[in-house]
């Protein structure tokens, strides 16, 4: 350990992008070949080309549904992030609050959303609101539990330092606990992003069976009833792509916020 600064190694490994892309192309090619060679009818398994065509042709109605699902997902994520953060801060301030409320958060988490979605949809008149509640229930827990751990993970010596300088509770929270919790919060957010989408889709399925929704899940159900399997696949592709996009966007956000100090965001040679 000499007295020269350690310079973080910059570098971007293109294989991390190229390798999965290559696998994807191989699988799609194989799929298309299989469908054509075996002459599998499109109502059993459509090929990637047909799915792409359907996606293009039906983009008008599919994009509207995508918008509906995205809106629910983002609102739910926003709600989950803010309420999760606020509740975690409350927990960190008072062990009594944490002890009394945490079990209920766990109950919310372990109850399968499919089981309670019908109830919520019956109780709440507004469809959008009921979907939002379902998606929020699914997305909320990882943020709450991660942030709670993060707030308590502040370096003990730094906490002692705060005491030495007679920092107020608020100062300790703002200057020490919240920044220390940031990586934990962000990794919770990344998990919750995917969960919010799943929650929204599941709730739409439940609501869709009653014909009361218009999101992507409803398109999947509808296409299934009408045996428009390529369209069903097209909607499915949109769901997957949305999930991937959400995950990548949140990973990027996390990287941008942490890159200057956190090990997880450090570029490796």
């Amino acid at each position: 350990m000499s007295e020269t600064p350690a310079i973080p190694q910059p570098g971007f490994n293109w294989w991390r992008v190229a390798a999965p892309l290559l696998i994807g192309l191989l699988v799609l090619g194989g799929w298309e070949w299989l469908v054509r060679a075996r002459e599998i009818p499109p109502y059993i398994l459509p090929g990637p080309v047909l799915i792409a065509e359907t996606l293009w042709r039906d983009w008008g109605s599919l994009s509207v549904s995508l918008g509906v699902t995205l809106r629910i997902t983002f609102l739910a994520l926003l709600l989950a992030a803010s309420l999760g953060l606020i509740l975690a801060v409350l927990f960190a301030q008072s062990p009594v609050i944490e002890m009394s409320l945490f079990p209920y958060a766990v109950i919310l988490q372990v109850t399968p959303i499919v089981a309670i979605a019908p109830l919520i949809i019956i109780w709440v008149d507004d469809v959008t609101l009921s979907l939002l509640i379902c998606a929020w229930i699914v997305a909320f827990f990882p943020i709450l539990s991660n942030t709670t751990v993060g707030l308590n993970s502040a370096d003990h010596n730094l906490l002692d330092l705060m005491r030495l300088y007679r920092a107020s509770r608020w100062q300790v929270l703002w200057r020490l606990r919240l920044p220390a919790a940031m990586p934990f919060f962000l990794s919770g957010l990344r998990i919750s992003g995917g969960l919010a989408l799943i929650g929204a889709i599941v709730a739409e399925f439940v609501a869709g069976t009653g014909g009361r929704a218009s999101g992507l899940a409803y398109r999947i159900l509808e296409s299934g009833y009408q045996l428009q399997i390529p369209r069903m696949f097209a909607a499915l592709v949109l769901v997957s792509v949305t999930g991937i996009a959400i995950f990548m966007a949140l990973s990027l956000l996390s990287h941008l916020l942490l890159r200057r100090w956190h090990e997880s965001a450090m570029a490796r040679p």
Partner: peptide, 18 residues
């Protein structure tokens, strides 16, 4: 025992800012 999210300057300024 430095705050990893803060620059050297911000770390040293902490006691004064508190």
């Amino acid at each position: 025992t430095l705050m990893p999210w803060a620059t050297a300057e911000a770390n040293v300024a902490l006691p004064l800012e508190l």
